[in-house]
Structure formats: structure tokens, C-alpha cells
């Protein structure tokens, strides 16, 4: 069913105004879209991180849905407990109020630090156990809440507080972990990635996930203008370019079947994405041309692999090569 914003506009945002996220925060847009797409009652958990901090400064909470934060590495484990409690209380007829008659959805959220790194074990365990929940990673590619330190999701070359672009070392030296693929390898019913600027894609995926019983994983590339060193109003444009440059392909894996959701019409070089972000400015300097080429080769290789998995024809190649 197609998403119609006019119809949706009758719904109240489940994220109330008055939260303390930065002006132009890309991640909170992502979360707002996720919750806007869910029609059913929903209970959410959060890993420690920017959004957890920004939305629940006591005595104020921006969450119009039941919400729990416990610690950094355990959003998935906490939600396992909530879901198990629901199953147990439901079968015993002990759910409070009207809750017993409702089909409640469970969504666990975490940033890339809380998902790729410190929370990875809890996520992997929860997915393996088959809890009926959606895990959503809002991936802004570094530990933004603690001051922009590198994470397992930070792309090669990016300058962060702990992988600065120095005189000798040009930013992060390792490539990022491909978490979406790792989650697909868990062989769970639904795995997808999206971005908040592609709101129709994102919300359709969430709605699809809500219709599927069992563990689901959605990885959302969402920008942090502070960490990416771009402008707040560019929060959505910058993730749009991540899709166009094929850095962040839109795809889904449903019951083991890979599907590409969007194929850019032309080969947009990765530097177009990097140009918007000063965390990559050193990579664009002539002396680091070899690095840029290496990064481009990596993106091309991953894209070709994805096309193969999705049963797609090879796409357009770089013009000069």
C-alpha cells in the first residue's frame, strides 16, 4: 500500500516537540518516520546515545509511546524482555487495561555505536532467538553523543575525534563493517536499509516489517551535521547523495530473497558525497588521490556484489575507466 502523506497527516507525531536534539538532526527525522509508519500500538527501547539523551531529559520526555532506556549495549536485550513479558502476560490474561486486546509492536533503537559495536552481541542474540521485534539502527557513522569518535560504522578516510586527519594518518584507516549484510546472514525474515530523505522507501519498509512476525532489522543511514561537518539544512540532501553514489544502496532481504529498491541512473563518483562533508576534506586533496580511488574501488566492488545478490544486471560504470 502506497504511503500518502495527506492521509498520514491526521496522525500525531509520536515524537513530541520540545526535545533537545540539535536543530536539523537527521537521526530524529529517521525515528519520527519509523514511528509515523507504524499504525499499531508500539513500545520502544533505546540504547544510550544522542537521541536517548536529547529526548528524555528529566522531567521531560518527548515519547508519546511507552519507552525504556536501560544502558548502551542492551537495547535489543531489554526489548527481548519486554516482548517476552507481553507474550507471558497475554497468554495468562494479565495485560493491564485495554492492552490485552491489542496487537502491540516492539521496536528497539540504537545508534551505530550501540548497534555495530557495543550492542552487537545483544542484537545478534535477540535476532537469533526470534523475538517478534524490529531493531532499527540509526547509523550516523560515529559516536556523536560522546564527541564524534570513530565506530565500526565510520567509513574509511573519515576524520573523527579519535581518527583525526593528521600529518601522517589521514583519518580512519579501516573500512566500515557491513552490518546490514551481517544481519542478513542471521537468516531472519526481514532485513533492509534505507535513509530518511527516501521517506517513502523507509516508511514502506517499516510497514512491511510490521506485517512480518519474528525478528526484523532496519539500518538507516542518518546524518549528523556536527560529525559529518556539513550544514544542518543539508541533513537530508547528504544522505540522498549517499544513495546516489551507491555508498548506501537501498535494498531489502525478505525471507532470504535480496531485492534492490533503487538503482541510480548514472555512476555518481563518491567524491560528490564527500564534497558536502568536511570530515572528508583531506581525502579530496591531490596527495590523497590514491585513497579516494581505493574508496571508490571498494564501493564499486560492494555494489557489484549487491547487484549479484539481487539478481540485477551490472549498472553503469565510471565514465573514464
Amino acid at each position: 500500500m502506497a504511503i500518502k502523506l495527506k492521509e498520514l497527516s491526521h496522525r500525531e507525531s509520536r515524537v513530541a516537540p520540545g526535545h533537545r536534539a540539535c536543530a536539523g538532526c537527521g537521526s530524529i527525522i529517521a525515528i519520527k518516520e519509523v514511528l509515523m509508519a507504524v499504525e499499531q500500538p508500539v513500545v520502544i527501547s533505546f540504547a544510550t546515545g544522542c537521541l536517548e539523551v536529547a529526548t528524555t531529559i528529566f522531567p521531560y520526555s518527548a515519547w508519546r509511546v511507552p519507552y525504556i532506556h536501560c544502558a548502551f549495549e542492551n537495547s535489543a536485550a531489554v526489548m527481548s524482555g519486554v516482548e517476552a513479558a507481553y507474550l507471558s502476560l497475554k497468554k495468562q490474561g494479565k495485560l493491564p487495561g485495554e492492552s490485552g486486546n491489542k496487537d502491540i509492536k516492539f521496536i528497539a533503537f540504537g545508534g551505530d555505536g550501540g548497534t555495530y559495536d557495543i550492542g552487537f552481541q545483544a542484537l545478534s542474540g535477540a535476532m537469533e532467538r526470534g523475538h517478534d521485534m524490529l531493531y532499527v539502527c540509526y547509523d550516523n557513522q560515529a559516536y556523536m553523543n560522546t564527541g564524534i569518535q570513530r565506530s565500526g560504522s565510520t567509513p574509511r578516510g573519515a576524520a573523527t575525534s579519535t581518527s583525526p586527519a593528521g600529518r601522517v594518518i589521514p583519518g580512519k584507516t579501516q573500512f566500515r563493517k557491513d552490518l546490514t549484510k551481517i544481519m542478513a546472514a542471521h537468516d531472519i525474515p526481514y532485513v533492509a536499509q534505507s535513509t530518511p530523505d527516501r521517506w517513502r522507501d523507509l516508511m514502506t519498509k517499516v510497514q512491511k516489517a510490521m506485517e512480518i512476525k519474528g525478528p526484523k532489522f532496519l539500518n538507516i543511514l542518518s546524518s549528523c551535521f556536527r560529525g559529518w561537518r556539513c550544514e544542518p539544512q543539508e541533513s537530508l540532501e547528504v544522505t540522498n547523495l549517499a544513495v546516489e553514489t551507491r555508498f548506501w544502496p537501498l535494498y531489502e532481504v525478505e525471507n532470504g530473497k535480496w531485492k534492490l529498491n533503487y538503482k541510480p541512473k548514472k555512476h555518481v563518483p563518491i567524491e560528490e558525497w564527500m564534497k558536502l562533508q568536511r570530515r572528508f576534506q583531506h581525502i579530496l586533496k591531490p596527495q590523497n588521490k590514491h585513497l579516494l580511488e581505493e574508496i571508490q574501488r571498494d564501493i564499486d566492488r560492494r555494489w557489484d556484489e549487491l547487484l549479484f545478490l539481487c539478481g540485477e544486471e551490472a549498472g553503469p560504470k565510471p565514465e573514464q575507466s
Binding site: 531489554v78 526489548m79 527481548s80 513479558a85 507471558s88 552481541q121 545483544a122
Partner: peptide, 28 residues
């Protein structure tokens, strides 16, 4: 017993799941 038994992947997750389940309203 009507218990939902969650066989987690670590004790850290065991206690985390207990916190989630207890907050949800269960005896844990």
C-alpha cells in the same frame, strides 16, 4: 509453569532482559 524462558547470549543480556520484562509489568 506459564513462564516465558529467555535463553540469552550472556548474563549482561539476562539482566537486561529481566529489566525490560519487569518494567513491562511481569514478575521476573
Amino acid at each position: 509453569v506459564p513462564t516465558e524462558l529467555i535463553l540469552v547470549e550472556s548474563e549482561h543480556s539476562a539482566m537486561s532482559a529481566c529489566v525490560g520484562a519487569s518494567a513491562a509489568g511481569a514478575r521476573v
